[in-house]
């Protein structure tokens, strides 16, 4: 029964990863593709981690010693992935905007007029 739940969690992770990669091809410009990539980085990784957590729970219920090897390490891996995925997404988006890669498809762009001010502020901070 609990093995079935683990398999369902892995399949959910697979489903959201497939959707994210499809979105990488379907969306029109770089900034919209960021959101498709976020689908892989959030639910894809989180569901795989929950599957391992549940596996650790079954090991604990069976009375095996190895369960904290799985549980603690996978919790640390989830924390690391959450922090690094967030920071790297922000770093890529910001450097892309600063290098002149502005959104091709957009309704409004509030950063367009403020961007020289931000650049000057960062130059002054250096």
């Amino acid at each position: 029964m609990i093995d079935t739940v683990i398999v369902i969690l892995v399949l959910l992770s697979l489903f959201f990863s497939i959707l994210g990669v499809i979105g990488l091809f379907r969306f029109p410009d770089f900034y919209t593709r960021i959101h498709a990539a976020g689908l892989v980085g959030s639910f894809g990784v989180l569901f795989a981690g929950f599957a391992v957590l549940l596996y650790a729970f079954t090991l604990w219920a069976a009375g095996e010693e190895a369960w904290f090897n799985y549980g603690a390490h996978v919790l640390l891996a989830l924390v690391v992935v959450v922090v690094t995925a967030t920071t790297s997404t922000h770093a890529i988006a910001r450097s892309a905007y600063r290098s002149g890669n502005t959104p091709k498809v957009h309704v409004i762009d509030a950063l367009e007029e403020d961007e020289p001010k931000m650049m000057a502020q960062e130059e002054a901070r250096r």
Partner: peptide, 23 residues
Amino acid sequence: ADRMLALDVINALVVIIMIILSI
């Protein structure tokens, strides 16, 4: 930037593969 974003997705996918194969 598109290429770097694709590499970022590849990194996330490699992490998922390793976590699943550990089971």
